[in-house]
Amino acid sequence: MEFFFFLFAIVALAGAVGVVVLRNPFYCVLALVVHLIALALLFLLLEAQFVAAAQIVVYAGAVMVLYVFVVAYVGGGDRPTLLWRAGARQRALAIAFGLVVFVELAIALLGTGLQALDTHGAKLSADYGSPGQIGKLLLQDYLLPFELASMLLLIAAIGAVALVGRRGGLPADEEALAEITPDRTLVDPARPAATGTMAEAVAGYGITTPMPDPQTDGRTLREEHS
């Protein structure tokens, strides 16, 4: 028990340090995955089987896949972070702040005088942490928070779609784009070039080549054939 606790705790903390320290955001995401898996194992040591499983499936699975996709899309790889840049004073301040937070939390958590802190915890019922008990709690004692959380998820999903949707997210520098490519033909007038219209993707039109007029082209084609 002690051995596993220290093993998982060290792995979790190493993952956390990796998230903070590593340069490449992609490696940061991978470090967080390691951290989350070790944390799920810590949850298992605390007999919270269902939460541990949910942690692995939801966090290390779904949420981290979303992160990986966005990091791959946005990139932003090797920008120098503050950790390695000149801002040594700000870095020192941040680390000092972190230490202060840790000491304060440790005092707050351990100095409460709760007798049970130094025990292994209360005697547990047989179904503690099982999916059955969690389900009973969620749908009986905590029904309102459960429903509110589901509403929050729905709102967040709609908000994310509204944020990322192309029609709402047009670049502001329309004039700058027009300067770069003065002779471009807009396939969709409501949308600037190079924002991924279907025609641009298929034909490669948009930025460099102006789009041929389909009517005149069709007419010449027919004349040649006849």
Partner: peptide, 8 residues
Amino acid sequence: LVRRNPLV
């Protein structure tokens, strides 16, 4: 506090 990339 330290990182500058919003993803991180």
